[in-house]
């Protein structure tokens, strides 16, 4: 397999007369943690949906794992984490995590074993039998991450997964996600509108501008691996956040 997970060339996406995406060139290497950041309406969610084959581009080419997004979806090559947990309220946490495994027709024992393992990795093993409404918002989103990982995909697509959570919960989840990424060879494509979140998590940050949605700058992070939350007080972190902010300003993202 190639070293590129996502390869987009000259990607366009037009809704009616709104250009959601325009001339997008993006390469995501295997094992990358790439954040898409930009003001609302810059097409970052649209780009993620094109990768996931939930939206069809109107121009350009895109390859996911070396195939079309459609083939990649049918091969269950990625896991998708939505803005909201989107857990099915009539299923327990465990049975929400096993849902994708049911769909691919895995036997029951293996489903349970895998769900157990995934819930362990997000720290929810003790809550397997609870229903979604019995969990806090942060725990629900962790369950939805476990669900996305249950198919053991090589690519994780995350659409502002922590946007609705309070800052303290979000810090905890960011750290958890970072450890998870470091422990596996997962490739992550992460949409956010928080500069701090992007700077803390990413190995590369893609800064986008709105109307039309295009890429302003791609910033390589020079922060070390194995970082923890304290790094946010370091000068290197501030420098990185400053570069992102400058790029956003260059894209006329402020006011």
């Amino acid at each position: 397999m190639s070293d590129t997970t996502v390869e987009a060339r000259g990607l366009d996406l037009v809704f009616g007369d709104v250009a959601a995406l325009s001339e997008i060139d993006l390469t995501v290497a295997r094992g990358d943690f790439v954040s898409l950041i930009g003001p609302s309406g810059c097409g970052k969610t649209s780009l993620l949906r094109v990768v996931a084959d939930l939206a069809q581009p109107t121009g350009g080419t895109i390859l996911v794992n070396g195939t079309t997004p459609h083939a990649a979806r049918l091969a269950r090559a990625y896991g998708y984490v939505f803005q909201a947990p989107a857990l099915l309220p009539w299923r327990t946490v465990e049975r929400n995590v096993t849902l994708p495994l049911e769909i691919i027709g895995l036997p029951k024992d293996e489903r349970r074993a895998r769900a157990c393992q995934q819930l362990e990795s997000v720290g929810l093993a003790a809550f397997a039998r609870k229903f979604p409404w019995q969990l806090s918002g942060g725990m629900q989103q962790r369950a939805s991450i476990a669900r996305a990982l249950s198919l053991q995909p090589s690519l994780l697509l995350m659409d502002e997964p922590f946007g609705a959570l309070d800052e303290i919960t979000r810090d905890g989840l960011n750290l958890r996600l970072l450890r998870l990424w470091e422990a596996t060879n997962l490739t992550v494509l992460f949409v956010t509108h928080s500069i701090e979140e992007a700077a803390f998590l990413s190995s590369r940050i893609v800064v986008m501008s709105a109307r039309p949605g295009r890429i302003v700058e791609v910033i390589e992070s020079d922060l070390p691996r194995g970082r923890d939350l304290d790094i946010r007080d370091d000068a290197s972190f501030h420098a990185l956040a400053h570069r992102v902010r400058t790029a956003l300003r260059a894209g006329h993202s402020y006011g």
Partner: peptide
Amino acid sequence: LERDLMVSLAA
């Protein structure tokens, strides 16, 4: 979202 989830899983 739930609909998208099922589509993303190629259900």
